[in-house]
């Protein structure tokens, strides 16, 4: 990587690229769970997909060439996805009572379909991914405004 050699036009590129890596990895992971392993996504999972999948396409638009306004179109998606993921996690954890869950047909959003290492669930991975994306986007903004 030559970011050190030519810092001005590329400052902040790496965090945006990392955001894209996380988004693309999340998308392929979600598609793997849903389409390959055949786990049906619940309603809340769909809302998180709606926020995550577009990032995979619009982040590269902000990377080639590096667009200082990338935050303006990426951050709203990441924030919405983060909120839905948080809601989902609290629902699974039982902090939010089940009666207000929005999905009644199909897969229950409360159902834990995957539990890796005894505690890692799908909504947890989603919240982690959105949190990292938000953090990295803010870092990119910080670097670009320098």
């Amino acid at each position: 990587m030559s970011t050190q050699a030519n810092p001005l036009p590329t400052a902040g590129w790496t965090p945006v690229f990392l955001c894209w890596l996380i988004a693309a990895g999340s998308m392929l992971g979600a598609l793997f769970l849903g389409e390959v392993m055949g786990l049906p996504p619940c309603v809340l999972c769909w809302w998180q997909r709606i926020a995550m999948f577009p990032l995979v396409l619009i982040l590269p638009a902000g990377m080639f060439p590096l667009d200082r306004k990338v935050l303006r179109y990426a951050l709203p998606l990441a924030l919405v996805g983060w909120l839905v993921a948080l809601f989902h996690l609290l629902l699974v954890a039982g902090v939010i009572p089940e009666r207000i869950q929005p999905c009644s047909r199909g897969v229950s959003c409360k159902e834990v379909q995957i539990e890796w290492f005894g505690f890692v669930t799908i909504p947890m991975l989603s919240l982690l991914a959105f949190s990292l994306i938000i953090g990295l986007l803010l870092l990119a903004k910080h670097r670009m405004s320098k």
Binding site: M1, T10, F17, A24, L28, F32, V36
Partner: peptide
Amino acid sequence: MNQKYLFGFAAALLMMVFVIATLVHNT
């Protein structure tokens, strides 16, 4: 230029991992 290669390489790698994981899973 390097960034484009890096991006293309990462995209190809992700796709490859996905395809291999799918094949392994289906087998």
